[in-house]
Computed example of a mutant assay.
Amino acid sequence: MNEPRYCMKKLFLILVFFTSISCFKEVAIDIPRHEPLPVVNSIFFSDSKIALTLGKTQPILENGNVTIENGLIKLYEDEMLKDTMYLVGSSFSSSIIAKAGKSYKVEIETPDFSTLYSKDRLPNYPRLSFLNYKDSVYIGEEGDLFSQASITIDDEPDYDNFYELIMFMKAETEDDIYNSNIGYLLYDSVNNDIVFQNEGLLNYYPYNLLFSDELFDGKKQTLRINFTMSNTGFIGAHKNDVVNLIMHLRHVSKNYYEYNKTLTLHYENQFGDIWDGVGEPVPMFTNIENGYGIFAGYSEVTDTIYKER
C-alpha cells in the first residue's frame, strides 16, 4: 500500500466531512428596552411658508404609526413670537413667510416629552455673476465623456458660508422638452474642482454638491464642475437637439450643510458588496435640543446654463 497516498486520501475525506456539516446554537439576545424620543423634520426656504413634521423613534423591529399630532409649536422670527403652527394633514404649517437674512426658532411642547427647541438663520440669496457650459471636454478614466460647467460665486464676506449645487439636463426639441430620467448628473470623483474635492464626498456619487467657502472666503470664485450624463439614462438628446443645464444654487445654513453631509454618508453606508462589505453606521447630525431631526433653511436661485457655441 502506498502509505503517504492513503494518508492524504484519509485526510481529504476528514476535511470534506467537517466542511459539509454545520452546527446551530440558539443564542438569546437581550435587547435593551427602547425609550422613544421625538423627531422633528423641517427644511424651509426663502419666500415660502414654514412647515414641520413631528414624530418619534421606534424599535427596529416595529413598524407602527410614529406621527405626533398633538404638539403645541411656537414659531419665533428674530426672537419675537410670530405664530403658533397648526396641523394640516400630517404636518404642522405656519402663515409666516420665511425671509432671507432672518433667524427662526421653534419651541415644541408635547404631552409625553420634554420641550424641544431649535433655531436656524436663513441665509441671503446666493450671488452669481457668470455661467457657462462646455460639452464633451474630455474622456474619463473609464471611457465616459465628460462636460464642464462653470459658475462664479460672489461670496458674502464676514460669514462662514455654505452652499449646495444641484444640476440636471434639459433637451429642447421641436416637439417637446425632455428631462433626464433620474434628473441628476454623475460628477467626476477624480478630476474636479478643488472646492468639491475638499468636501470628501465625490466618491459617494452624490446627486448634489455640498461645499463651503473655506477656500475662497469673502471672494469671487469660479467653480468648474466636471460631469457626465453617460450613465443617467438621458432621453430626448437627438443629434440636432439643444441640450442645456438647469442649475439650482442654494445658500444653505451650517445646520443644513452638516445634516446633508451626514445624510450622504448614511445612505451610502446602507449598501455594501463582497469587496468592501457593509459600512459602519453614521450618526445623523441633529440640531434639535431634547430630540432628533433637523430644523434648517436655505435661499435658492435657479438658472439655465446654455451650452457654449
Rank of each mutant, 00 (worst) to 15 (best):
Q270L: 15
L263T: 10
L263H: 09
F211L: 14
V282L: 12
N226R: 01
N203Q: 13
I294D: 02
N287G: 14
F196L: 15
F234Y: 04
F285L: 05
N269A: 12
N203P: 04
V195K: 05
T262L: 08
E199K: 00
Y292I: 14
L202T: 04
Y267Q: 03
K239N: 14
L202I: 12
G279T: 12
V243D: 00
E289P: 06
N290M: 01
N290F: 13
L210H: 09
P283E: 10
G293E: 06
W275N: 09
F216Y: 07
Q197P: 00
D241A: 14
Y187I: 13
Y204I: 15
G279I: 15
N240V: 13
Y298F: 12
L223T: 06
E258S: 07
N269F: 06
W275K: 04
K254I: 07
N208P: 05
D193H: 10
Y204V: 15
L245F: 01
V252E: 09
Q197Y: 09
L201H: 02
L185P: 00
V252W: 04
D193T: 02
Y256D: 00
Y257C: 06
I225T: 01
N181F: 06
F271A: 05
N198C: 02
G183S: 13
Y178I: 14
L186N: 08
Y184D: 07
F285G: 03
E289Q: 12
N181S: 09
T264Y: 03
F227H: 03
I194R: 02
Q221L: 05
L249F: 04
L201C: 07
N226W: 02
N179A: 07
N290P: 11
K254C: 05
R250M: 10
I194T: 15
T264W: 05
N255S: 13
D273W: 11
